[in-house]
Design a protein around this nucleic acid. Structure first.
Lengths: 282, 282
DNA sequence: GCGTTTCTGAAAATTTTCTTTCAGTCAAAT
DNA sequence: ATTTGACTGAAAGAAAATTTTCAGAAACGC
């Protein structure tokens, strides 16, 4: 049996510290377990003795046996990295892995729904610093919009994220100039207010409207110059937006990579401007 | 430089025993070097001291450095499935599908890092209506936190999403009761303020702290009762949060399905309470 | 709340691992 | 045959890693 499985098997009886340890081991499996017990202790933020006890709990003689087993697994699994993950594939009933593999499969096909051409056009429009970018999302999908505007702001100036309150929208509409880009994320249970907003943006302000939507196509699409369709059906109670997020990230990453020098200097000067919150980099 | 190359480079000056040793190491590279010096001594039919000397000869400080280097090599080599992509290599034409398949592969392995047990525990804690739930995320990862709180709110009462302004935090802290759940999303470029907040929540308010983090493990983890590790490396300029979002969705979906009746009636009454925004369902 | 059980890490003890010393062996050169 | 020099491994020594002990802290049940 793989160590990983032993861990899962024993996980009912884990204490808080042991769960932290298990998370550390599994999150960088199997390499996290290859260094000394002290290294691992430090990384997982439990003491070495706790690790030692843990090994007994999952049915091993001690840390050394644990390492030996990991090496043996590694040696076995040498064949191909893909196969390593293929092996020990979840048996039906694991909710999480079930869900994730569905989401993963869905994401794999998301690339087919959007042509490279569409993708490039969208990137081009959003990257152009001559025109401002306005971003908004639906009630739930605003998460995606927020992510987009956050990253885009790191790459270029003139990015505005519209608040969800319609009362504030006219202000932004008035600010829009011809050629500006209006990026709308809207998934089902569409909001009619967004469609009206998009219509205004296009008809009155001559903005270009890009809409990211699902395959049922939001009413916003009627007023769009570009549509980015993304699959969201998860086969469960709720839709999954992870593909949408991935596409969003693909867009901003592409833009950032294409304008790396600008982006780098911009992020650097940004960092010097931030005062309130201190970060630790590792 | 790889160990293997160091060996080859120094091989002119090898003695008989050293050649035997080199052969043994290279014949099962790199695994032969992963066991103890004595094991290797036995296998290669030279004494441990000879091995120790050998390491000096090929330019290493000792056997331990030798092992550490081998592990590092191994780890690098494994990166291939997700991280092959060298920056700037994206030839026109496939950026999107490239990016998506990487994200998809990464998501597939996300399930391995979190055990079903951990997942269930987290769901259980978050679902329990007896205790309130407080949610917060880092500067960027707050979008994940927002998604979580949004959906969770549809399923149960008592869900609070803390604003990012630290000035407002004391209010929420004071409101927390023992046993309440504090869900923190924190990915790298960790914010120390979140760690302090988590510490206060746990130590002063006796809250249970669940932290979703990457494999480098956020400082928040020190104060956590549960850790959910999620892979975020995309091999590009920025990390990708799509796996994190998927895990989040898996959690809320699970909770909603387990409490479907409650959820349904809750959403229905919610809908009658919403007045400002009108939806169209298709 | 209060006693009980469980968990945890510091420090000590133990074990293992690695390195150094040193004397014996071997081969080549004289 | 003897000397020389290099190579080697046994054993001692040093260093490190791992396990055990133990007392304080936290969590739990009543």
């Amino acid at each position: 049996m793989q160590i990983r499985q032993k861990i899962e098997q024993a996980s009912d009886a884990f204490t808080a510290g042991e769960r932290k340890l298990a998370a550390a081991i599994l999150s960088d499996y199997p390499y996290a377990g290859l260094s000394s017990i002290q290294d691992l202790a430090e990384r997982s933020e439990v003491s070495a003795p706790s690790i030692s006890r843990f090994m007994g709990k999952i049915g091993l003689a001690g840390y050394q046996e644990f390492q030996r087993s990991l090496i043996a697994e590694l040696k076995d699994g040498d064949r191909s990295p893909v196969e390593v993950h293929e092996r020990g594939r979840h048996i039906e009933g694991d909710f999480l892995s079930d869900f994730l593999s569905k989401a993963s499969a869905q994401m794999a096909i998301a690339g087919d729904a959007i042509t490279e051409e569409q993708f490039n056009r969208a990137c081009g429009l959003l990257a152009n610093p001559k025109h401002n970018v306005y971003v908004i999302g639906g009630r739930i999908s605003d998460t995606i919009a927020a992510h987009m505007s956050f990253h885009l702001r790191q790459v270029r100036p003139g990015v505005y994220h519209l608040p969800s309150d319609p009362e504030t929208w006219p202000e932004y509409l008035l600010q829009m100039k011809a050629g500006d880009v209006f990026f709308v994320v809207d998934f089902r249970r569409y909001q009619t207010s967004l469609a009206s907003l998009a219509k205004l943006a296009r008809d009155e302000r001559n903005a270009r409207v890009i809409v990211m939507t699902d395959k049922w196509i939001s009413p916003v699409a009627r007023h769009a110059t570009d549509v980015l369709p993304v699959p969201i059906e998860s086969g469960t109670l709720w839709d999954t937006y992870s593909s949408a997020l991935a596409v969003t990230e693909a867009i901003v990453t592409r833009i950032a990579e294409d304008n790396w020098e600008t982006t780098r200097t911009r992020i650097e000067s940004w960092d010097t401007m931030r005062i309130t919150t201190k970060d630790t980099d590792a």
